[in-house]
């Protein structure tokens, strides 16, 4: 940055005739860090259309980390639930639908050790003959 900025021409008082918010609308940005992985919400940009939003999103959210793909969606096109009125998570006990209580770990360990024994046996046989 140069010292030219010390003598910045500023617009005269009241010279800004367009409203500060302009005609831009919000777009939600989703970035993908690796092909095949899900897109993750990264943030928002204001733009007049999707093409412009995509240009901005590439520079805003695509440069902090390696990024392979970006989606932009006009917020007006998104439908969301209402914090006050829409219940999403049930308050009644529905723990039966969660995959809890299976002793998978022990079974897996048993299976692994059986496989290991088979490998040892193979080695033993090789040494024998």
């Amino acid at each position: 940055m140069s010292r030219l900025r010390d003598h910045l021409p500023l617009p005269a008082e009241g010279a800004l005739i367009s409203p500060p918010e302009g005609d831009a609308t919000p777009f939600e940005v989703f970035i993908q860090l690796l092909r095949g992985k899900p897109h993750v919400h990264a943030g928002t940009v204001d733009a007049v259309d999707s093409e412009m939003a995509l240009q901005f999103a590439r520079e805003h959210y695509g440069q902090d980390q390696a990024c392979v793909h970006i989606w932009v969606v006009p917020r007006s096109a998104m439908l969301g639930t209402d914090y006050e009125h829409d219940v999403i998570w049930r308050s009644t006990d529905r723990s039966y639908k969660l995959a809890r209580g299976y002793q998978v770990h022990n079974r897996w360990r048993q299976f692994r050790s059986k496989e290991d024994v088979k490998e040892y046996e193979k080695e033993d046989l090789k040494e024998h003959y």
Binding site: A47, Q55, F56
Partner: peptide, 8 residues
């Protein structure tokens, strides 16, 4: 002129 363009 606008924040988005500033960063870009």
């Amino acid at each position: 002129p606008i924040l988005e363009e500033d960063i870009a």
